[in-house]
Amino acid sequence: MKYLERGYLEKDELPPFPSEERLKKRPVAYIECPQPIPCSPCFEACSVGAIKMDNINDPPEVDYEKCTGCMSCLRVCPGLAVFILRLREDGKGEVTLQYEFLPWLNKGDKVELLNRKGEVVGYGVVNWVLPPERNDQTSLVRVEMDASLIYDVRAVRKVRE
């Protein structure tokens, strides 16, 4: 459990990514929650049974074929550990994540893209948001970025003009 010495996952600790083919088909949930903790709202939120969890302490595992990308798990995860990934036809990539800071993000906003260690790895543009008031003050934001970045970008910060 080396990740507990750092607070972030290294490549070899990440769960397997969905195939490129799958990522192109439709959005899919990618969950970074490797530690056994007594937590299960993601599992309970998934209506198609795409999240496997044997008991409340079992870490979630996503069946990428069953997952429809509906974002129900993303809305409720208290660990901010769910990311919805997608590769678009036009070669761009998208990551949808939870956002709970001021100023709130709006469609069209330019954002800094941060990796798991908080390093800025590029810039992206918000292309959809679920406003905070629709999800008990946790906004969901979808950010458009270079396709190669969707595997690393895990937070965003508004670029102040």
């Binding site: 972030y8 970074e32 903790i37 208290p78 941060l114 260690k117 390093e119």
Partner: peptide, 14 residues
């Protein structure tokens, strides 16, 4: 604490 709580602040650069 829980890894996910640590990851939340680590990715913001703390």
């Amino acid at each position: 604490g829980y890894f996910v709580h640590a990851a939340k602040i680590r990715r913001l650069g703390i």
